[in-house]
C-alpha cells in the first residue's frame, strides 16, 4: 500500500482513539478528575503539546494531485501532506537568513524574497518548513516505539508477576540480561545489524526501553495479585484470563499513561544522539542539529538552522516533561521513579 495511505489511516485511527479516550475519560470519575487537575496545573504545557501533535497530524494527512507549488512537475505525482502544500515548494539555491531578500553568501536575489521566516538551509530548503516536518518525525519515534515497547512490557511484566514460578524466572533473566547491556551501545548495535530505517530505530529503542516498564508492571502485578478483590474473584471461579483483563490490566493503566509520557521525551532525545552518530531517522530535528554543526564555524555564521531545530526539540521535550511530571503527581505519586 502507498505509504501516504497508511499514514492517513493512522491519523484516522488516532482520531477515533482520541474520541474513544475522551468518551472513556468522561465516564470515569477518577480519570476525568485527574484530567481536570492536570489541566489546571499545566495548561500551557498541554497546549504546547497539542500544537506539536496538531502539526504532526497535518503533516500526516497527504494526498496526490493539486497544483505544484514549486513549479516542478515531479511533485504532482507524489503524495504531499497539508504542511507540504502550505509551506513547501519555496525552494532556493542556498543559504538565506530569516526574512532575507538575498542569498546569504554572494547576495544574489531570492526566488521568494522575504518569504522564508526562518531562512533556508545549505541547499535552499525553507527552515521553517523543515522544522514543522520534524514534529511528525519526533511523534512517530515516540509513538511507534511506545506502541512496540509498552504492550511487550505489559505482556511480560504481567505474566511474570501474575503466574510467577518458571515464567517469572525466565522473564526476570531476560530483563537482567537486557538491562546489563549498556543502553546506547545495544541501541547502536541493533540499528547497525538491522540496517538504518525508521522502523529499525523504533524497534531498537523499544528493545532497549521496555525493560524499565516491564519491571514496574511486574512489581505492580505482584502487589495486585495479593489484594482482596483478586483473591475474591479467584475464589468465585473467575477465569485467569478474566482476572487479568478485568482486574489487573485496568489497574495498570495509570502506569501505562505515566510511562508513555515519561518515556517519550527520553526517546526523542535518544534519537537526536543517534542522528548525530549518523544512524537516526531522516528529517528529525536531531538530524537538522547534526547538519547544522559545522554551520557555526562558518564565517559569518549560519545560526538559524540550529536555532530553529534546537528550539523546536527543546520546546516539545520541555512541554512533555512538565506534563509528565504533573501527570505522575496526579495519578500516582510513588510507584514510577526516574529510571535511568
Amino acid at each position: 500500500m502507498e505509504s501516504h495511505l497508511i499514514s492517513n489511516g493512522i491519523v484516522l485511527v488516532m482520531l477515533f482513539g482520541t474520541a474513544a479516550t475522551i468518551w472513556a475519560v468522561r465516564r470515569s470519575r477518577l480519570w476525568s478528575s485527574a484530567f481536570v487537575s492536570l489541566w489546571h496545573r499545566r495548561r500551557l504545557a498541554l497546549l504546547v503539546t497539542a500544537v506539536y501533535v496538531g502539526v504532526a497530524l497535518l503533516d500526516s494527512v497527504a494526498w496526490v494531485g493539486g497544483d505544484s507549488l514549486g513549479g516542478d512537475t515531479v511533485s504532482l505525482h507524489e503524495a504531499r501532506s497539508v504542511i507540504d502544500r502550505v509551506f513547501g515548494g519555496s525552494q532556493e539555491k542556498s543559504y538565506s537568513a530569516p526574512l532575507a531578500t538575498t542569498e546569504f553568501y554572494g547576495g544574489r536575489g531570492l526566488r521568494y524574497p522575504g518569504g522564508h521566516w526562518l531562512g533556508t538551509d545549505m541547499i535552499g530548503r525553507d527552515v521553517f518548513y523543515l522544522t514543522l516536518k520534524g514534529a511528525r518525525v519526533a511523534l512517530l519515534i515516540g509513538g511507534l516505539t511506545s506502541l512496540i515497547a509498552i504492550p511487550l512490557a505489559l505482556l511480560f511484566g504481567i505474566s511474570a508477576g501474575y503466574f510467577g514460578g518458571r515464567i517469572d524466572d525466565v522473564v526476570f533473566f531476560l530483563m537482567t540480561t537486557l538491562a546489563s547491556m549498556p543502553g546506547l551501545l545495544l541501541l547502536i548495535a541493533l540499528i547497525m545489524v538491522m540496517g538504518k530505517s525508521t522502523l529499525a530505530v523504533c524497534v531498537a529503542l523499544a528493545v532497549t526501553g521496555w525493560v524499565g516498564f516491564c519491571r514496574v508492571s511486574r512489581g505492580e502485578t505482584l502487589k495486585l495479585r495479593e489484594l482482596e478483590f483478586v483473591s475474591a474473584a479467584r475464589a468465585l471461579g473467575v477465569s485467569e484470563f478474566q482476572i487479568l483483563t478485568r482486574h489487573i490490566l485496568p489497574n495498570l493503566m495509570h502506569l501505562v499513561i505515566i510511562t508513555f509520557v515519561l518515556m517519550f521525551s527520553g526517546l526523542v532525545l535518544s534519537e537526536a544522539i543517534l542522528s548525530w552518530l549518523g544512524i537516526g531517522v531522516d528529517g528529525s530535528w536531531g538530524q537538522m542539529i547534526d547538519q547544522a554543526r559545522n554551520e557555526l564555524s562558518r564565517d559569518p555564521i549560519v545560526w538559524w538552522n540550529i536555532a530553529a531545530s534546537g528550539a523546536a526539540l527543546f520546546g516539545l521535550i520541555l512541554a512533555v516533561n512538565f506534563v509528565g511530571d504533573a501527570l505522575r503527581d496526579v495519578l500516582d505519586p510513588r510507584t514510577v521513579k526516574d529510571e535511568k
Binding site: S265, I273, G286, L318
Partner: peptide, 17 residues
C-alpha cells in the same frame, strides 16, 4: 526540568561555539 530538556548535542555545540 529546563536543563533536562536540552539535548546533549545542543550543550556540546553551544559550549564549543
Amino acid at each position: 526540568v529546563l536543563a533536562m530538556s536540552v539535548s546533549v548535542l545542543l550543550y556540546i555545540i553551544g559550549a564549543q561555539y
